[in-house]
């Protein structure tokens, strides 16, 4: 019942977000004129953008609804209900905007008949998962930092680190330790970053070895394509469940 309210309050932003993806989908389709190529472009955008939006919205929403949360805490509600309600309300509406915003233009364009349907659905699933993961991470940051500015800074840093810096560090380490067998290292390193993981998952499905990169190649060699996909999907689910469990854990111990 409280969720309906949260949906209401966010609806404007969700619509903006939905509109953005809708436009993006349309533009990409017209520019590429080819569904499967559009899917690849889309992947590059989704893999970076959904975490960013998830992080910012998550942390912003946490601080914005703090007052209301305090009001709810004095009401006969379970703490986990309050925080999970907020979390799922936000994550679901963001994921919904993504899936429908991109899904509708592609459906109009006729993705259903084309061969790229599976890749496209996987892409949306990964985007939704990334949203869930990063909203949860942002919520954890909010719960551990009462200082708004610090929380915001940390959230942005987290995104920057996982989306950009992580890859750079990874590459540098690969170059530096060129002479050593570093398959295992790179395998583990890519598992520790949900963004890398989703990228690999989608490229494995698209089966474009040129784009695989080093980690992807190792992944494919190690797991094989289909098992590799299952493994990376499972890991993403863990990446999603762990921060949510942490939200519940933290919410139970926090003083207001």
């Amino acid at each position: 019942m409280t969720y309906s309210f949260f949906d209401l309050m966010r609806s404007r932003w969700s619509l903006v977000y939905f509109g953005f993806y809708f436009l993006l989908g349309m533009v990409l389709l017209f520019l590429n004129n080819d569904v499967s190529k559009a899917v690849i472009t889309m992947m590059n955008i989704i893999v970076v953008l959904t975490p960013l939006i998830g992080t910012i919205f998550g942390v912003m929403y946490y601080y914005n609804s703090k007052e209301f949360t305090e009001l709810l805490l004095a009401q006969p509600l379970r703490r986990s209900t309050i925080f999970l309600g907020q979390y799922f309300g936000l994550a679901l509406s963001l994921a919904g905007s993504l899936v429908f915003g991109l899904g509708i233009p592609f459906a109009i364009y006729g993705i259903v008949g084309s061969g790229a349907l599976v890749s496209f659905i996987l892409l949306l699933a990964v985007g939704a998962l990334l949203t869930f993961i990063f909203v949860a991470l942002a919520y954890n940051i909010g719960l551990s930092n009462d200082n708004k500015i610090k929380g915001f800074g940390l959230a942005i840093l987290l995104w920057l680190f996982l989306a950009v810096i992580y890859d750079g560090m990874f590459l540098i380490s690969l170059v530096m330790f060129d002479d050593y067998p570093i398959d295992k290292f790179s395998l583990i390193a890519s598992m520790l970053n949900p963004i890398d993981l989703s990228r690999i998952l989608i490229i494995l499905e698209l089966d474009i070895s040129v784009l695989l990169g080093y980690t992807g190649a190792v992944f494919q060699k190690f797991f094989g394509t289909s098992f590799g996909m299952l493994a990376s999907f499972g890991l993403l689910l863990i990446w999603c469940a762990a921060p949510v469990a942490l939200i519940v854990h933290k919410a139970k111990r926090k003083d207001f």
């Binding site: 309050m9 914005n64 609804s65 703090k66 007052e67 209301f68 305090e70 009001l71 004095a74």
Partner: peptide, 10 residues
């Protein structure tokens, strides 16, 4: 419960 500082969603 009446909280000390009335913080409401604005």
């Amino acid at each position: 419960y009446l909280p000390q500082i009335a913080n409401f969603p604005s």
